[in-house]
Design a protein around this nucleic acid. Sequence first.
DNA 1: CCAAAGATGCGCT
DNA 2: GCGCATCTTTGGG
Length: 223
Amino acid sequence: MLGPTFFSRSAEIVAPALLGCVIRRKLDDVWLGVLIVETEAYGLNDPASHAFLGRTPSREPMWMNPGTIYMYHSRGGASLNISCDSGPAAVLIKAGIPITDDISPTKALAVMHKNNPSPDKTIQRPTKRLCSGQALLCRALRLSVPEWSGKAFDRKRLYIEARAAPPPIIATARLGIRSDRDDGRQTRFIHGTLAHAATSDPRTRRASTPGIDYVELPPSTSL
DNA sequence: CCAAAGATGCGCT
DNA sequence: GCGCATCTTTGGG
């Protein structure tokens, strides 16, 4: 289980290091498993960070011990973040892909589909789209702001497992930030071989130039 | 009231 | 597959 040591580094280091790690969430005695494929870093002196808007009770987790869960609502959905550094800083878990293995049984997929049904109830979401957004992921894992914000991870109910091997990584600009609050840093990170489950892949976009709009990084064992 | 680290459907290439 | 309009829910000014 990842703990304070892992999260005590800067958000810009922690965010890419989370790609490929697995979130485990126990619901009704079933362990759900989601592999992280997309994250964003909200670091120190960052005008896009919620910390920049001021210290309030709901944002307090950004100042708490590294590894503290920070959740908030935006535009109808909840978002999962984790405090980093000595604060105020956090990483946002932006997308993941459901997995099954020794810990998470096939049944876990059915639970996630039930938690996060398609708007058109006559069909099911594709499994790879079940967690392809920060609010979708929270819905599929049934993570709510009042239950989890300000709390620590808990080996019995919710934790993040270290990854087996470091993946290739794409670094690019963050999404959904008002231009007057974005200083242009490329601190959105996408799993290089599982980008099809991310919110979007800058490599397949029309107007995007390699080396300018995004950077591809080889697997780094130092992360 | 209203902006906010979004999601979706629809029309288009 | 993209760009845009429209719907979303909640904490905070």
